[in-house]
Nucleic acid binder design. Structure first.
Lengths: 242, 242
DNA sequence: CCATAGAGCTAGTCA
DNA sequence: TGACTAGGTCTATGG
């Protein structure tokens, strides 16, 4: 791993641009710090006036313009974008990243580049644990967390308005539609359950249950209004974290 | 703006750590490239094995661990986090970022630091244009884009299950609940309109209209099922972009 | 602080 | 490719 091709403050714009083009062509991740303007045209339209910013160009094609406050970038282009790097007549380095569907252009114009760092992609990353899908699996193995006597028959049962998280029958043979949330249930989760209840057609009696560690007050009221049920679960207990 | 305090490949871990602590204490944005492991405990649990990564520490407290593929970071901590930087007995630099509510810890352990870049926050950024709120304003000024004779009476009308985007009356004095989307309407947007229609109480006849540039097939079917209406708008025309 | 809703959401999955 | 949904969503706003 060599870092000798990184841009240094002493490099002029032509040298800097060439180093960055070489690194990008060689499928390296490129991080650039310098003075730039940023122009985005697509689903929205934004312009950032000249200022010092960090730009990351990933080998996958993703481009990220970071600010110094939030986690979310100021501007970006996702991995399906095609990125060209060039120098213009004003001696500015232009990074132009285009995507189709939707057709969008991100154009970054560097008036000066202070430094850059280039490196080859590594990464053997472990998966996230504790997702909603993990929770589904736990509940399928242990449906008594939801209700005694409950049997889960299907996971992600597809109906015409979406997929039902868990579908089963209770101990007196009612069908049960279950929507699972790993965090406090919001009113929109009641909407979702209601949609499945409205669309699913059955001869049997069907119960609707929202399963979550907690529920907002208005969501609970709305749920009761529809005569659906809430089943509280203890995430820490289910995942054996304490 | 001086960059002389950035970490260089020749620095040992103690020098590197001190430079980074100094920069962070001086409220600079810090970008670090090196070999590290990453451990997150909070709403989920993740662990990244040793690998070369970029870490950004923002003066606001936000910490971002970037991968080399996607726009979204591998791990992060939002701006309300408290970040401590330290060196441990194994000569590793530890970045420990804690947030409360929810209580979460991100711990990054650098076994080696290749380079870093530090800089003071600048940025005088222009706002995004073309948001849904901009669209609301356009539609309030020009309700004929939705329907001739329509009058908008309220913007973001609060009822007990949420906020109605636009509320008005049509030319035969029906009340109209309008949900606006700037992109293709999905089935969950019908849910949202339906929730408002179910909850809003009136003596008059109430119409529900979903306003968007397009609508998915299943969303349209579901909308018709409820006897709500769809009004197609031309975003490019409304925002005068062509 | 909690609740709601938007976002250029992004990213993944499945038909 | 479109549709749907989760996400450690994040972030802004209003009560």
């Amino acid at each position: 791993m060599s870092y000798c091709d990184d841009v240094l403050p002493s490099d002029n714009m032509l040298e800097s641009t060439n180093k960055i083009i070489n690194a990008h062509t060689a499928n390296k991740a490129v991080i650039i710090v310098g003075e730039c303007t940023v122009d985005f045209n697509g689903r929205a339209w934004t312009y950032l006036d000249e200022g010092r910013r960090t730009v990351r160009i990933n080998p996958s094609g993703a481009v990220v313009v970071s600010g110094t406050k939030s986690v979310k970038p100021k501007n970006w282009q996702t991995s399906d974008a095609k990125t060209e790097i060039d120098i213009d007549d004003d001696n500015h380095m232009i990074i132009r990243s285009k995507s189709s569907n939707p057709k969008e252009i991100l154009e970054i114009r560097f008036t000066s580049v202070y430094k850059s760092i280039h490196y080859s992609p590594p990464e053997n990353d472990v998966e996230v644990e504790g997702t909603e899908d993990d929770l589904h699996k736990k509940l399928i193995s242990n449906p008594e967390y939801i209700e005694n006597g409950l049997k889960i028959l299907e996971h992600e049962k597809t109906i015409n308005t979406g997929d039902i998280d868990l579908f089963g029958i209770d101990n007196i043979d009612n069908e049960v539609i279950i929507e699972v949330k790993r965090k406090k249930a919001q009113i929109e989760n009641v909407d979702q359950l209601n949609r499945y209840m409205n669309t699913y057609d059955s001869d049997k009696a069907v119960r609707g249950i929202l399963v979550a560690p907690d529920i907002t007050e208005s969501a609970e009221e709305y749920l009761k209004n529809y005569q659906y049920e809430f089943s509280k679960i203890d995430i820490a207990k289910i995942f054996d974290k304490k």
